[in-house]
Amino acid sequence: MEKIGFSGTFDPITNGHMWVINEARSLADEVVVFLSENPAKKPRFSAEERKSIIALSCAQQGWDNVQVVIVKGDYTARAAKKQGVHCLIRGIRTTADFDYENLIQQTNVDVLQGAKTIFVMPPRDLGSVSSSFVKALEGPIGWNWIMKKFVPAPAYHAWVLSWLRREWETLWDYDTIDATAIAHADDWFVRLTGATMYGGPQRHYHNLDHLVHGLCEIRVWAANTRPEPADVAIVKQAFWFHDAEYGPAASGSDMTAEEASARLWLDCHLGQEREDAAALIRATDHFQEAHVEHRLKDVLLSVDLAILGQDDEVYGNYTRAIRQEYIHLPDVKYRQERCAALAHMCRKAEAGQLFGNAYFAEQYNERAIENMQREMAQLAAA
């Protein structure tokens, strides 16, 4: 077969979609992905953005025989036939899918005189994966770690950036500030999430995942404990910036990363009052934690440490990311230093001192001890 088409809204494209595209590649010389604008579905991304995400996802797999075409104001089957594509491919996951797709197939051929359809059945692990399923995951703590399993990396990156963007706009109240202030805040969002900060390829743990997880923790903490809204905003501001500068300051001075991040925050000119959040960022400096006080210090430190009390899968992602962060260390030295750090935190947890905030202690302390003890045993046995 010369060409085969695959149609959908792809908001977002999932690993199930990618499987169907790959099946199509085995049946034809060229695959044309017909992307429906379908504004009635209120997609997260524009058609052009979705087209780019699909193209990047296919390119990442080395699939050079896939092109993406946006369908505007036409039936996909009819648009396909106009472009010389006489056969479409669809994935069937359930009997309900078959009934629906069979009706569409009959309409495409008998009513529209469009392309015919062939059906394929995805493997069991992809049988429940759809765009609707993926979108429904968003929100609770850990949602990003779960979503990552079901979508290709470019789709995941775009979705996380979109989620962070909405969090950022809410923090700075985009509905009320003027165009100049919005443009300034936009510039800082791009900077913070870009390649030199949280979005950088060298960021294996203190990255966009870290931002998403921490902001979710703050949201849930606020919903359960009802602090003053101003305090929630200060914690969020500090969290966005507290690891913006990671490692030694770019200047090569002896300035700590926390101090560099605090100064970056003070220089950003976002919001009206910045000293409070700067002091909170400085209070997260673990080398200074006994000497720097702030009324919200225990909250921010607990948000940062909450990853230790997650379920097995999330904690496993965390430990792998930490190893990559210290990939420059030989295995023996890494195991020694990591075990020492874990033993220190485990002792604090056993003494009830790891999570200074009572809410986080109740949620995570017991599980954190289990996770750290298990990791130390694994490192010792390696």
Rank of each mutant, 00 (worst) to 15 (best):
G8I: 00
N15K: 02
M18P: 04
V20I: 04
I21E: 02
N22G: 03
E23N: 02
L27H: 14
D29K: 13
V33H: 01
V33I: 09
V33Y: 00
F34M: 05
F34V: 00
N38G: 01
A40V: 10
A47H: 10
E49W: 05
S52P: 07
A55H: 04
A59M: 07
Q61R: 14
N65M: 03
V69F: 01
T76V: 08
A77R: 00
C87R: 03
R93M: 02
T94H: 09
Q105D: 11
Q106H: 12
T107E: 13
N108V: 03
V109W: 04
V111C: 14
F119P: 03
M121P: 04
R124S: 15
S128I: 15
V129I: 10
S132M: 00
A136V: 06
L137N: 05
E138K: 14
I141C: 13
I146A: 12
K149C: 02
A153I: 08
P154T: 06
A158Y: 01
L161D: 03
D173C: 12
D175V: 04
I177K: 07
A179R: 15
T180D: 15
A181I: 08
G194M: 05
L211T: 05
H213T: 01
A222F: 11
P227T: 00
P229F: 05
A233T: 15
V235L: 12
A238I: 06
A238K: 07
D243P: 07
A244T: 07
Y246N: 10
A249F: 05
A250H: 11
S251W: 02
D254E: 07
E259T: 15
E259N: 15
R263G: 09
L266F: 14
H269P: 03
G271T: 08
A277L: 13
R282G: 09
A283T: 10
T284K: 07
D285E: 12
E289D: 15
E289G: 10
L296A: 12
L308E: 07
G309V: 09
D312R: 14
V314E: 11
Y318S: 11
T319V: 11
R323V: 08
I327F: 12
L329C: 11
R335Q: 04
Q336M: 09
R338L: 01
Q353P: 09
F355Y: 13
Y364N: 01
N365L: 04
I369R: 02
N371F: 04
R374G: 08
A377Q: 14
